[in-house]
């Protein structure tokens, strides 16, 4: 095991970087999509139950199946994993963003309006900062989940540590099979924990002291 890691550490690091990079970029994209959708949903109350239903049903679609369905549409490589990870990552953030944005008291928003804030200013300076801790909580859940989803990207020859897991599974009984599978799995877990720590820090730094719990 030690020999295996010593031998391959450069490759492991590179794949770890790819893995994190895929997740971070997809989650960022997902955050923007989710907040935009959440704004729409909070403006039009009828959409709310639809949004909740989609985020609940969406998460039940097996990621392997979604990737498989994407291949005939967009081919193999990096694109299908990005689409799949972004899709799954959007759902928890959307759910939390809707809760967070609609949780801002209407009295407070009316007061903001009465003071002369336009709708964009109200969103940027009141609604978003107040919903931020809840949105960040969704983002953290989303990131954890995406680390796992990204591992399956290797199935369509995408980047990341998933390749190790698939290699290990394909060679069961072979010399390095267990090493591949273990390094891939633990790698994903360790990266997920590290990334979560970073997000926790970001969440604290970007949340106003006045609403921190």
């Amino acid at each position: 095991m030690v020999d295996f890691i010593a031998d391959k550490w450069q490759d492991i690091l590179f794949r770890s970087y790819q893995h994190v990079s895929l997740v971070v970029q997809s989650v960022l994209l997902a955050t923007i999509i989710a907040i935009a959708l959440a704004v729409l949903v909070t403006q039009i109350p009828r959409l709310r139950s639809a949004a909740n239903m989609i985020s609940a049903i969406g998460l039940t679609i097996p990621s392997l199946a979604l990737l498989g369905l994407l291949v005939p549409l967009v081919g193999i490589g990096t694109l299908p994993p990005v689409i799949a990870v972004t899709f799954y990552a959007t759902l928890p953030i959307l759910r939390n963003a809707v809760v967070g944005l609609s949780g801002v008291s209407p009295t407070l928003l009316e007061s903001a309006k009465g003071m002369g804030m336009g709708s964009l200013t109200r969103f940027r300076r009141v609604q978003l900062p107040m919903a931020w801790p809840v949105i960040m909580a969704g983002l953290r859940v989303s990131t954890q989940m995406s680390m796992g989803v990204a591992a399956i990207a290797a199935y369509v020859l995408g980047p990341g540590l998933g390749t190790y897991i698939f290699t290990g599974l394909a060679q069961i009984g072979g010399a390095n099979a267990l090493n591949y599978a273990l390094v891939g799995t633990f790698g994903v877990v360790i990266l997920a924990l590290l990334l979560d720590a970073v997000l926790l820090l970001v969440s604290r730094l970007t949340t106003s002291k006045g609403i921190r719990v």
Binding site: S111, G114, M115, M130, G210
Partner: peptide, 16 residues
């Protein structure tokens, strides 16, 4: 509205 002061119950301050 920026030229009219508006004060409501409880002050309704922005908590953040």
């Amino acid at each position: 509205r920026r030229t009219i002061g508006y004060v409501i119950q409880g002050g309704s301050l922005f908590p953040h």
